[in-house]
């Protein structure tokens, strides 16, 4: 009896909170039929925004996957870093989680905006950071940095350094050891972290909004376009782009589940 009640309650909560809203978006996108959806999605500004989001996602994912794995290796294995320093860095890695995306964006503006020394210097060299693609990439890098690191570090700790030491004893140097011994063990965690990063890149809104200035056809991303459409009461168009983003997220979610199951096997 209790069992029925609890299960029922949980299903209701999930339904109200997660499933119905998802369907509502899908329904909203087709308010004006298939053509309305298609038009909303293939407007030139929507295509441009999706392109920007795509570029950011690709660049950020590659950069953070690389640096994330390297930093995890150093934080777990390096003997050239003091223990205290490692612990400090380990807690700093988490900070972007605690930073509101808007604040993350503000940080980049404060540090590299046109009024700052660094921004002015780069501006004179012809590189705009803020209100341009580089700043948006940096802001997203900041926000997504912990994702890969947080996935990889526990696995590295769990597998221990003995297999790597065994490889060293058999004559393998760092490079060979990494690819032949360490990588096969952390591979699925990296994939999982990368998927999380991609999802976050696609969805990043606050930080990018602040840094980009949300300039049409220049720095507008998919999420900031949705925001602007809503502000302009252009709900159907907003729904189309939102549905595309939501579909992407659900796909990533499925992929995440799959990666998680692989992670557990290995």
């Amino acid at each position: 009896m209790m069992r029925r009640l609890w299960i029922g309650l949980t299903v209701v909560v999930f339904g109200l909170l997660l499933i119905i809203p998802l369907f509502r978006i899908a329904q909203g996108a087709f308010d004006s039929g298939w053509s309305g959806f298609w038009h909303g999605l293939t407007r030139p500004e929507a295509l441009h925004a999706l392109l920007m989001t795509g570029i950011i996602a690709v660049v950020v994912t590659i950069v953070n996957a690389f640096f994330g794995v390297m930093l995890s290796l150093y934080l777990v294995r390096a003997t050239w870093l003091g223990r205290k320093l490692k612990r400090l860095m380990n807690s700093i890695v988490d900070l972007p989680f605690a930073v509101s995306p808007v604040i993350g964006g503000l940080m980049i503006v404060l540090l590299m905006g046109p009024d700052t020394a660094l921004g002015a210097l780069l501006g004179r060299a012809g590189i705009d950071i803020v209100y341009a693609l580089p700043g948006m990439v940096v802001a997203t890098l900041f926000v997504t940095f912990p994702l890969v690191v947080r996935e990889v570090i526990p696995v590295l700790q769990e597998i221990g350094s003995q297999q790597e030491e065994a490889a060293h004893m058999m004559g393998a140097y760092a490079w060979t050891t990494f690819w032949r011994v360490t990588w096969p063990s952390i591979r699925w965690s990296v994939v999982y972290g990368v998927v999380l990063t991609v999802a976050r890149c696609l969805g990043e809104f606050g930080a990018v909004l602040v840094v980009s200035g949300n300039i049409l056809f220049k720095t507008q991303t998919a999420t900031t376009l949705v925001y602007q459409d809503v502000e302009n009461f252009n709900l159907t168009a907003a729904n189309a782009v939102a549905l595309a983003l939501a579909a992407g997220s659900v796909l990533l979610l499925l992929f995440m589940e799959w990666a998680k199951s692989r992670k557990e096997v290995h």
Binding site: P21, R24, I25, G28, T223, T224, V226, Y227, A242, L245
Partner: peptide
């Protein structure tokens, strides 16, 4: 994406 959540 949080913007999508808002819209929902």
């Amino acid at each position: 994406p949080t913007a999508v959540v808002g819209l929902m």
